[in-house]
């Protein structure tokens, strides 16, 4: 991924050393005090552009990579700075996310609790807005916002595979295999999403629009990476993934309907239609066998399964609320305008 623009002193320090292929040891150890200062200054770490971009880039070193960062994935100074942001983010989430009371630690009760939690879904529905009202420009903004996750769909959840066993592991891999196209690369959800972006006149290379997306969009993916990259948080990773799959079928039908209303063809609607059918399967497996199976095997993780589910829903709820508020008041939901499309329009 190309190096994005900095959003404050911490990300300025990181992007500068990336531009210098890692810079000197002094440059790298200077990241930690810059991060410490940014955390001290941040009103809300979850919505802080500088910190969320810094964390996103530090994580991206472990995914598709960032230009200039090939030797930095395991750099102790960068990992040190990352750990400080991770602690601040986890602390903020634990303080602010409301977690439902724990059910009895058996698979069926865990599934029922997760279906109850994901069924509550209050607040303005972004999906309903997209189905009925979104303009073509807003629909393209939706694709840009979703691209941060969808172009690497399921990757953050894959970190958990070697941390699970038995029923939970089999369930996670079954769902992931479907996400990854079951051996057919053109059916990978990330590939189908790239095709949707192309169909809407957008560049599907990872990171093209990163400068345009707000902190909460980065935070949403950062939370997945935080849970995925720490074995300690495997319960939260599983809970978040289950909740994500359980809140997907119905909204995706509305996103697909919105795309059809705007006149887009199957190249754009396929991604959403695919998720209607796929996630109606995945949610059953994820709730009962993945989350429920994990809790039966490791009952002490019940609290984190619920925390992960609630944290994902909460951050995505904040994010969706901001996007909905921007659109209904006639503003862009992005930090900067999208370049005009060459072949404009569906």
């Amino acid at each position: 991924m190309r190096i994005p623009d900095a959003r404050g002193p911490a990300s300025a320090q990181l992007t500068a050393l990336l531009a210098d292929s890692g810079g000197t040891l002094e440059d790298r150890t200077a990241l930690r005090p810059a991060v410490d200062a940014a955390i001290a200054d941040a009103a809300d770490v979850v919505r802080d552009d500088d910190l969320q971009l810094t964390l996103f880039l530090l994580y991206e070193l472990a995914y598709g990579g960032v230009d200039g960062g090939d030797s930095l994935e395991w750099d102790p100074a960068l990992l040190d700075a990352r750990a400080v942001i991770e602690r601040a983010l986890e602390t903020a989430l634990r303080a602010r996310v409301s977690v439902p009371p724990p059910p009895s630690p058996d698979a069926e009760s865990v599934a029922a609790a997760l279906f109850a939690l994901t069924g509550e879904d209050a607040g303005p529905s972004l999906a309903r807005y997209v189905a009925k009202k979104a303009t073509e420009e807003q629909f393209r903004e939706l694709l840009v916002l979703r691209s941060v996750y969808a172009l690497k769909e399921a990757d953050p959840q894959s970190w958990a595979i070697p941390r699970l066993h038995g029923r939970a592991k089999a369930a996670l891999v079954e769902v992931l295999a479907d996400e990854y196209g079951d051996g057919r690369p053109h059916r990978m959800h990330s590939a189908i999403f790239a095709g949707a972006m192309a169909g809407a006149g957008l560049d599907s290379r990872y990171g093209t629009y990163l400068d345009a997306v707000p902190a909460l969009t980065l935070a949403s993916v950062n939370v997945m990476s935080l849970f995925g990259l720490h074995r300690r948080l495997r319960g939260a990773s599983v809970g978040l993934f289950a909740a994500y799959e359980m809140t997907s079928s119905l909204p995706n039908r509305q996103y697909g309907n919105g795309a059809r209303r705007l006149g887009y063809g199957e190249d754009v609607t396929w991604y959403f239609d695919e998720h209607v059918e796929a996630d109606a399967v995945h949610e059953q497996i994820a709730a009962r066998d993945l989350a429920g199976g994990l809790v039966e095997a490791e009952p002490e993780l019940l609290g984190d399964v619920l925390f992960g589910a609630a944290a994902g829903l909460t951050v995505d709820g904040w994010s969706g609320g901001d996007v909905h508020a921007a659109w209904t008041s006639g503003r862009s939901a992005l930090r900067r305008a999208l370049p005009a499309v060459a072949a404009a329009g569906p």
């Binding site: 079928s249 119905l250 059918e277 996630d279 109606a280």
Partner: peptide
Amino acid sequence: STIKPYCDGTHKA
């Protein structure tokens, strides 16, 4: 379901 015979999650609503 709108995609019968497959499930589309409507039972939840």
